[in-house]
Design a protein around this nucleic acid. Structure first.
Lengths: 334, 334
DNA sequence: TTGAAAGCGCTAACAA
DNA sequence: TTGTTAGCGCTTTCAA
């Protein structure tokens, strides 16, 4: 910057101002400075600017994995909106581990983000402490924790799954199985399973419920297919299956078709997540859409307004997203 | 840090050292300092450290969109490996626009990344200039540009698609259609289309080739289904379709099945990308796997070794990935 | 509208 | 093993 200033015959301060948007520099000076900077191949150094102004322009985000269309949708809309506000996303993957999440969050906080968004509502004690004293807005998304750290943008995985159980029971299914991943890892998956149990209990069908474990999340299509194979071996009289996610439900559906079983004629299948896959698949698969892009944009909007009003220390908001049931051919009684 | 130093009764330099890994501090002092820091809720400030040491710990990455399983796979493995080396990914989305990419790259360079990875080999002149004079290793991935900026980790989209055409012709198909997105936006899609034309020409079948445009990338499953509908209306005697990506091929396949057309009996379908979807779908879909995770890990490995050897200015490497044809039921002559 | 001085929180370089 | 000094490249603050 000093070099640019010298070449342009102005002070470094003027160069600095020429690179900001609406500061007080004459149009003429600004253009000259920018042109010279471009010629000299000068690239502004945000690191130094951030240090001095104590504003990083970062929003930190942790998601369990990038390998999940739902989370990518959320991050995509979050990112698009925050970029518009001049903020960049600093993304980290916790790999479904709250210990890894703790480590990750510590790393991210060292970059002095202006806000932080975490997925889910279960964290280590130290994570809660780190986030609590970070002095920036904290948003927990994709869940509705009973004891939130600060702000929340999410939905109840449990009651959404109950809604799905209601739908299946309404359609006349009774012997229903749940296919999910390891619940120690995937807390949202665990909540969905809890919702399944609650729904079955409420309908007096808990004794007809079956459970198949699908391994470590994210549950793949292959794991869904394997789970269906296991289900058919263990509980061949099952009438319907609800899977913890759409890819698993799709895998389960193809396994049936491959074996000559009709879906839903011989076996009904439902998923979770509202993926495009479920709407296009043949048969279309019943699912519930938690509107991941809405979670992202609501979160972005919340963060923008919080930062405008001065950041941390404001009344904690709780935005509840209402997932939508999308009935498909895969559970329609023929 | 000053506060921590005072409380611990040491100098700031000692505190600084206590937070580095293998520097010269007595084990006792380090533990005491860390403990006090933890109690005081002190979080190390990377921004300042980066400014002083002129090392950001960032690797910048641009991808067209997060909404594409192939790119997420690449970023996932890239990220996992670089995190191991203490580097964080600074990710940006170009939205398939080289103008947006230019803007994005300028933003990213301001954060002083230690290396930068861009997707594809087509860029604006200014992008090339910015990258050329950034003084850091530059990797272009997912392509094999004829005139690379610096390092390359990728494969030829054109010749990979030619391989697919060979496979279809070998299976006996002649009247073959190509379904792809807008080629102005998606340069990899354009390369694949070129490869299709080259393959058909080589087999003397260009006059029997058909083309259906699927809109702006990334091409969705829905667009694939719509493209199939259009194809059946315009060229009902088509024998096989090759799609620019697997999701589109899946959509096209379901559209056939929905209309009572057998795949491959009445219409053969092939995709591109090696998605799990193609291996699980019923019928399984013929695809070609560019091994996105390998692209990521090869890129990570290249970057690690370049940074170890001092960063920019080293001999430009060109790592070619060999995509694998994965024949599926969707093109198998019955 | 422009400039000079001070300093953001850390580390390189050197000294003890 | 520990401490002192200077300064990374910018912006804040104050003055002209």
């Amino acid at each position: 910057m000093k070099d640019v200033a010298r070449t342009a015959g102005v002070s470094v301060m003027t160069v600095s101002r020429a690179f900001k948007s609406d500061r007080s520099v004459s149009q003429q000076t600004r253009e000259k400075v920018r042109e010279i900077a471009e010629q000299m191949g000068y690239v502004f150094d945000s690191t130094a600017a951030n240090l001095r102004s104590q504003k990083s322009g970062f929003v930190a985000v942790t998601i369990p994995t990038i390998d999940n269309g739902n989370f990518s949708d959320t991050v995509g809309s979050l990112s698009a909106q925050l970029n518009g506000a001049g903020l960049q996303i600093l993304l980290g993957y916790s790999n479904y581990s709250i210990e890894k999440e703790e480590e990750l969050i510590e790393q991210l906080l060292r970059r002095r983000p202006e806000a932080i968004v975490v997925t889910g509502g279960r964290h280590t004690e130290r994570t809660r402490r780190l986030l609590g004293q970070a002095g920036i807005p904290v948003v927990e998304m994709w869940d509705l924790p009973t004891d939130p750290i600060d702000h929340v943008v999410g939905f109840s995985n449990a009651s959404t799954m109950e809604m799905m159980v209601d739908h299946l029971v309404e359609q006349g299914y009774r012997r229903i199985a749940f296919v999910g991943g390891d619940t120690v890892w995937d807390t949202r998956g665990a909540d969905r399973r809890r919702g399944f149990v609650a729904g079955m209990t409420r309908h007096g069908l808990l004794d007809q419920a079956r459970f198949i474990a699908g391994g470590k999340p994210p549950i793949s299509m292959r794991q869904g297919a394997d789970a269906m194979a296991e289900l058919l071996a263990q509980y061949p009289d099952t009438e319907a299956v609800v899977c913890v996610s759409d890819p698993a439900a799709f895998g389960a559906t193809t396994e049936c078709i491959r074996r000559g079983l009709a879906v839903p004629g011989d076996m009904a299948v439902a998923g979770f997540g509202g993926y495009e896959l479920s709407a296009i698949s043949c048969p279309t698969i019943t699912t519930v859409d938690p509107r991941p892009a809405d979670i992202g944009s609501q979160t972005a909007h919340l963060i923008s307004s919080l930062l405008e009003q001065g950041g941390a220390g404001q009344a904690s908001q709780r935005l509840e997203i209402t997932p939508m049931l999308r009935p498909g051919e895969s559970t329609t009684r023929t």
